Computed example of a mutant assay.
Amino acid sequence: MKKLLLAAALTALLPITAIAAQADSTIGSNVNENQLDNFYVAGNLGQTQYRTDITHRNSVFQNIRFGWRWNDIVGAELGYAYLGRRKSASRFAETSVNSRAATLGVNAKYNFYEGFFVTTHGGYLRSQRINTDTYYLTGSSLKRTSWNNGWYAGVGVGYDVTRNVSLALNYDNYRLQYNHPDDAFRDRVNVAAYSASIEYRF
């Protein structure tokens, strides 16, 4: 709970700072007086790292987000993230956990110097985790799917290539759970995501 409150506080801090620092009509470098034009789509590609001792904890990270920002500063977002597959193996079996999440949250962007900016976002996620046990001796497998609630938060730094296009480097954290009624296995894990992103503003 403390981590969740800290993430929420950090997410809320940047929009407040940005609005206070840019109270005039020349906010950032991408201001558009028509607020309907402040919709954007962003895509991320990178690597996830499960914060666990299980082997093969790194995997591919893919994320797409749709959102809107008031005066290109603060707004809401909706997204989908593929968080990859982690694996662990013993002499007799292999276990893999495949994770993805739908996200709903707030986002903020602050241009601090000639097209350079910092971003932050965070909010609620609904994760799907597929736990698959494969048994070497029999060649059989057992698959179970768990849906759970969680949270996510992240920061980034980037540059506005044009009025409509931005590039950035990002760090995100996803808090996931696994809890299936037919499976004794229970799990809570933080998944770190390191990625590059491109954003297009309409």
Rank of each mutant, 00 (worst) to 15 (best):
L6V: 03
L6N: 12
A7D: 10
A7R: 09
A7M: 07
A8M: 05
L10D: 12
L10Q: 09
P15M: 04
A18P: 10
A18M: 07
A18Q: 05
A21R: 01
Q22C: 02
N30F: 09
V31H: 09
N32H: 02
E33N: 11
E33W: 00
Q35H: 06
D37S: 12
N38E: 08
V41T: 13
D53H: 09
R57S: 07
N58E: 07
F61P: 14
Q62K: 07
N63S: 10
I64M: 10
R65H: 02
F66R: 15
W68H: 15
R69P: 02
W70P: 01
D72Y: 02
I73C: 08
V74K: 14
G75E: 12
E77S: 07
L83M: 03
G84D: 02
R85H: 02
S88E: 13
A89E: 14
S90A: 04
R91S: 09
E94M: 07
T95C: 08
V97A: 13
S99Y: 05
R100D: 07
V106S: 13
N107V: 12
K109W: 07
K109S: 06
Y113E: 06
F117I: 05
T120L: 02
H121F: 00
H121Q: 09
H121A: 00
G122S: 02
G123C: 12
G123D: 13
Y124R: 12
R126G: 11
R129K: 06
R129I: 15
I130C: 01
I130V: 15
N131S: 14
N131I: 15
T132S: 06
T134N: 08
Y135Q: 06
Y136V: 08
L137M: 07
K143S: 12
K143E: 09
S146A: 11
G150T: 01
V157N: 09
V157H: 10
G158H: 07
T162I: 05
R163Y: 13
V165G: 07
N170M: 07
N173S: 12
R175S: 10
L176Y: 03
Y178L: 11
Y178S: 08
Y178N: 05
H180M: 12
P181C: 11
D182K: 10
D182N: 14
D183S: 10
R186C: 09
V189F: 01
N190H: 04
A193H: 02
S195D: 04
A196D: 07
E199A: 15
R201V: 00
R201E: 04
